[in-house]
Design a binder for these strands. Structure first.
Lengths: 191, 191
DNA sequence: ACCTGCATGTAATTAGTTACATGATTTT
DNA sequence: AAAATCATGTAACTAATTACATGCAGGT
């Protein structure tokens, strides 16, 4: 899947500007599909050129007009076609977890800070999902399914990180102490 | 992070061939960093050119020799430097969950099949992690941390999918029935 | 005879990220 | 006065995916 199809999906629920989409992606969608401005704007422009989206311009804050995109009938049709052809890959690229894997190559302080940072990000995402729930009641079953799954996964991750944080840090400190001993030259009374 | 650094990480634990790495990535690492041949082989070649890896060739099954890579001291040093500079982004691109989000645009049969497929993939990953645990005991604390987190997350996902599967399918069928009614022309006795 | 597993690699395509550019309004 | 928010877009760069190419060994 690409950002283009994702934008079509999001706009099939309700019209939005590119900026709105970015907000939604980094808030409620972040746990299953993250993407940024640099992908969204070109995608919207291309979809509009192809007639899958249409937009009305209103004066924006900057030099360019603000564009409110909505999906066309052709867009809805194309979306259904594309969805039918997609295979359900599930791909995670977590630099965070690679860093955790390599924890013994990092200082315990950094490991602790990284976990703290990740916990903050999860907290933020959970609150964003919760807020989205409140003013969006008649959500289709799929949206509810994904949202609740997101909450479940994020909560599980947060719980795990909180409860294993201290254990990991302690293990790292113990290992480092051990290593520094074994690297010390033996003060040879034994010789 | 890129596949290059990931290969360096994996090889910092033990030497391996490109093929071995692929196996490990799609088995024990799949839940936090997925990647394929097309990224791994060029990455290994480049790392070897830069002197961060070295390899010994043995005759392989195909026309090309099999290469056993191991990390050099320079590689270890570079790895530590790179790890220190990485910021912990955590990025998920799940076509599966986008499809679930759009479940009402799919047939209930396909939705059910997709969930079944995902459950199979999770089961496979869990068994792979379990097996890796058995013949790799003296793993560093970071590796254990990530492995247990992976098991926790995968189990949670599997439980959620299993327990919400039927509810989602039923909701979809109910909605489709409702829709087909509202699309039917009214057999106007009222007029 | 065919498929799967082992094993490596390249080339073409596709896509995503980062940095830049613009500029008004609101908050600190 | 500076920073953040709103709002859009482009260009350069980096990276990943997909498809292709090779070929033996062992199982069905």
């Amino acid at each position: 899947m690409d950002t283009e199809t994702l934008c079509l999906c999001a706009l099939s629920f309700e019209p939005a500007t590119g900026y709105d989409l970015k907000q939604r992606f980094e808030q409620v969608y972040a746990h299953f599909y993250a993407t940024g401005f640099g992908s969204i704007y070109p995608a919207l422009a291309k979809l509009a050129r192809e007639g899958l989206l249409e937009f009305t311009s209103t004066p924006g804050p900057g030099p360019r007009p603000r564009k409110h995109y909505s999906i066309t009938d052709k867009g809805k049709h194309t979306l259904r076609e594309r969805l039918a052809a997609i295979e359900p890959v599930h791909r995670v690229h977590s630099d965070f977890l690679v860093l955790m894997l390599m924890a013994d190559q990092l200082t315990p302080e950094r490991v602790d800070a990284l976990i703290g940072q990740r916990l903050e990000a999860i907290k933020y995402q959970l609150s964003a999902i919760k807020e989205a729930c409140s003013h969006d009641d008649d959500a289709p079953p799929g949206a509810q399914f994904v949202r609740t799954l997101g909450q479940t996964m994020l909560n599980t991750a947060a719980e795990y990180l909180s409860s294993h944080r201290q254990t990991l840090i302690s293990a790292l400190r113990a290992e480092q102490k051990h290593e520094s001993f074994s690297h010390e030259p033996i003060t040879g009374e034994s010789a």
